[in-house]
Design a protein around this nucleic acid. Sequence first.
DNA 1: ATTAGCACTCATTCTTATCGAGTGCTAAAA
DNA 2: TTTTAGCACTCGATAAGAATGAGTGCTAAT
Lengths: 361, 361
Amino acid sequence: MSANPIIDERARRVLTAIIETYVETGEPVGSRPLTKKHGFNLSPATIRNIMADLEDLGLLTQPHTSAGRVPTEKGYRYYVDACIGAGDAFKERLTEETQYHLESVRKDASAIVQDVTQELSRSSSQLSVAVAPRFLKSRLSRVELVPVRGATVQAVVISEEGIVRNMLLDLNEPYTSKHLRRISGYINRHLAGYTVREARERVINQVLEHKAAYDTLMAEAMRVGQVIMERQSEDRIFVEGVSEALQRLKFRSRDALRDLFRAIEDKHLMIQVFNMVEEMESGVQVIIGSENPVGEMHDCAMVASPYLREGRVIGTIGVIGPVRMHYPSVISMVDRTARFLTRVFSQEEGGAAADGHIGKP
Amino acid sequence: MSANPIIDERARRVLTAIIETYVETGEPVGSRPLTKKHGFNLSPATIRNIMADLEDLGLLTQPHTSAGRVPTEKGYRYYVDACIGAGDAFKERLTEETQYHLESVRKDASAIVQDVTQELSRSSSQLSVAVAPRFLKSRLSRVELVPVRGATVQAVVISEEGIVRNMLLDLNEPYTSKHLRRISGYINRHLAGYTVREARERVINQVLEHKAAYDTLMAEAMRVGQVIMERQSEDRIFVEGVSEALQRLKFRSRDALRDLFRAIEDKHLMIQVFNMVEEMESGVQVIIGSENPVGEMHDCAMVASPYLREGRVIGTIGVIGPVRMHYPSVISMVDRTARFLTRVFSQEEGGAAADGHIGKP
DNA sequence: ATTAGCACTCATTCTTATCGAGTGCTAAAA
DNA sequence: TTTTAGCACTCGATAAGAATGAGTGCTAAT
């Protein structure tokens, strides 16, 4: 990860300096100004030679013959991989605020992620996106059915970690409370303790076994169980900080910007990207420009990290920003944020999944 | 509403023609092209005279001395008030699709509004916003408490219309299911049948009466009731169609665009605007440019309409677009959409508030 | 009351010239 | 062998001028 052997230390320092001043100014950086600002003990001419080498390696380009140098995507990639020291001065700042916001009012799992996403967008001044925790690997603890009216019931689904999801669903016919308890009883008996994935299989087996449903309630229970399982695995995506994004993301054309948002609004595309991040598994991932599988996102970079519960990935959070962004600080913020979510979802004491602390006066 | 006496019929026709071609082309419209396209039996010179009159009235301007005319905000206002016939050819189109989408999968109240907002954004190709139904005037039917873990419970709140809301909350201490039933029993006994507003008062009175809470459960119940009431009145705002908006909303500066989104992301400001719409009460409202109380929205227009349940306003839905927008069609779409929501929330049969029809194969 | 004609205005577009930051290359210095 | 100084060259960006043409206002004729 650290020492990339292609170029020597000096060239690396130059590359870093170029990228960092380019990120700052947004303008192609020339050799003379670079020597002024940075304390290299080298003349512009020497810098130019190094620049030429870096250009041969494909890490820099010139927009036109007589302009300064601009980093290429490959250049950013190299910079991110090899030039950013692990320990930087950007690590403070985030956590206190975030924690503060979360501690003050308790939320359910999705709301926590949404809040944190918003927080991340604010602190990074960037568009921020996340997928809500998925409970595919979470173990079901209990299901309660609350009659609403007619054949409609509200299902309250609780995982072993005390994470709650709600869904409205229609039964085949109105049942009495007593019958509803029977139905949820069936479900709890057969599915409690299993992950959503396992439970789904069990439901299917049960349905097959009891094809000629000997008990209407049992059949209803199985059907309800199935719907619940299907809904459980649905993904929910949060997008926060549109206004921040508008400020930062300068695009070739306005249409490109619109296409980006179209892509972001398209669940499937985002899921695709998030999956990519999760497959890597090793903390913060940086996806630069055309590395992104989604074409509409070729003009921007994404910094994202999965967050875990008990060692398993349950979701992803990250930011989308211009390729020309301040990676060290953003990477650090995303890392912190993902770790924070991991901590929240892993801590055992029940508070993490509650919404609405009744204030004691 | 219809006949505004300031200008005569012919001038009105000219104004309408100018605004409509301007909306179409986006360029100042001159006298000669206007006579070509439209079948006025008048020469350019005459049109110019009429234009000059309209300019004196403040309904038109010229960007510079020798350009065509452009409508002023006042011009749009006059056009909207006096020139748009009530019946137009734009009334078809929306309803079928929307209904289709809603009928296929059932949702809870907020989700319905969110879906419809998205639909409105798509069909109008505009940024679309809405406030979720507020139940301040809705009557409470029942509250159920489902234990989650420890002292955390999930409250399922059901209104008399079968509309459901969920919230997690922490009790003072863990209670058994039996005790929880007692607590919800108290709440249901004291608050069922009252509107949120009335219930809130009752809670306060109850608390005062039983200051030296003779029953812990009772005290807990009252506290829970209070929290539920407070949460019930919270507003939730939906914003859909950012990508559409980016396409349409051309702004003086990009900063102005960002400011607009900042304003939209600011709940309080949006609520302020929505309140304005609701106070008018008479169907679709058009807020043009600087008529908007929110400064950041001076560069765009908003077309919005409250939606009702049983004659009472419970929320608002609308679109935000450029001042230069095709008002007749947008007004019609917003109107249709609001009426649709009104119908959905007013229809008695229980389906409208259900989420998750269990498909019969 | 309407229209034709004409002089005038002024944003837009195109051309041309200038400027200057920055490079590459070569030859000298270290 | 590496670094530096010097110089010619490139090319975007800016500015100034000239031509274009759509559109108006005004006046006089219909």
